[in-house]
Design a protein around this nucleic acid. Structure first.
Lengths: 202, 202
DNA sequence: TCTGAAACTGACCAATTGGTCAAACCATCC
DNA sequence: GGATGGTTTGACCAATTGGTCAGTTTCAGA
């Protein structure tokens, strides 16, 4: 991916990626079409392909960097901080990602459901390494008696599952809570804080 | 959906649905093709359409009944039983569904990611009603001091999120745990029991 | 064994798909 | 104003899509 040179390239690349995120996150890679993306972007199909070499290239541009955004909150967990506070902070940041970037979350979920054909390497490399590293920190905190002892990797899984659920299953969440209740996130935040506090406080 | 009459109809309908589950759960509705399903089923495409009127019809046949299977474990939660035991039982049954029917879980997840166009009515009706009913039971248990007080609907969400994660994000789970570790489910079961026990015991 | 219905197929169709290309457009700088 | 290079598009293509249909094969029961 070379950086856009001109102002027009900058603007149109962004417009295309924005439209593609909308379409890919809803229909997955195979289910999305260039015509749909072009229509959402308000550009002609050949014009899309002037900026990106192929459908694959657009999808790839979206995925690359997504894992980074996804892992940043975990990276930010400070080994020298207060254990419970650090983990609650991680949960809060992850939930904010679900609230503010639900389409990115769904794009990621789609990739997982398909067996992660395009990012499996990153999962087994970068992701795995970071989880191992942070698990060691969690384990140390548990050994020191500053955190209740639970399986650290599954603990991280639980943070992912509980936070991403509010983005990926947004329709279901809102259907169950009823249309009136507008925003499920404040209550979700309070619930998750109680959950992890009770789980982790020694 | 009329019941299959002959033995051949019985067998081929099942073969088709089995193949369709495989394909739909991986690629979603739009991403799946009849040719793929036909190939997996080992039947010709016109033959598929001899048994099902359309691609939609196959997908619909899979979805209908899925919600039932999905809700049964929640229905089985006994209002007269022991609160913590009942909820842990629900978690266990739901996790077993994830382990034994991961493709069904992914089919459901795909539908959610697309905004649940085909089952929204059921979500806002049947699903919502059952959740409301069981939430009332949970709330009563909390009022009686037999369960720690948390938001009951979000508690149910947390069961869904934590259990379905192991089916829907299976690739990620296994990538992080490393290929050697074969089956994540036993450890997941123990982790979830600890989690919900600590969260809910008064 | 015969017969009628059920099961199956190759050939086909119109629409949609990702992608190409030559030609046109447009902004800027000399 | 003309030259130049980035930008845009209509027309087009081969492949794939969901679906049809006329006809053939297979099967169960009399």
């Amino acid at each position: 991916m070379t950086r856009p040179r001109t102002r027009i390239q900058q603007r149109n690349s962004e417009t295309i990626l924005e439209a593609a995120l909308e379409v890919f996150s809803q229909h997955g890679f195979r289910g999305a079409t260039l015509d749909q993306i072009a229509e959402v972007a308000g550009l002609s199909k050949p014009n899309l392909l002037y900026y990106f070499a192929s459908k694959e290239a657009i999808h790839g541009a979206l995925l690359s960097g997504l894992l980074e955004t996804w892992l940043d909150p975990l990276r930010a967990m400070d080994p020298d901080g207060d254990p419970v506070a650090e983990l609650l902070g991680y949960v809060r940041r992850k939930l904010e990602l679900s609230r503010d970037f639900p389409r990115e979350s769904r794009l990621f979920a789609n990739e997982m459901l398909q067996g992660a054909p395009r990012i499996r390497a990153a999962l087994e490399g970068e992701l795995r390494d970071l989880v191992q590293e942070k698990s060691a920190v969690l384990q140390r905190w548990m050994d020191e008696g500053r955190l209740a002892p639970v399986h650290p990797v599954h603990l991280i899984f639980s943070v992912w599952a509980l936070t991403q659920h509010y983005a990926d299953f947004d329709v279901q969440v809102r259907a169950v809570l009823g249309g009136a209740k507008a925003d499920p996130f404040p209550e979700a935040g309070r619930f998750l804080e109680v959950l992890f506090r009770r789980l982790l406080e020694p």
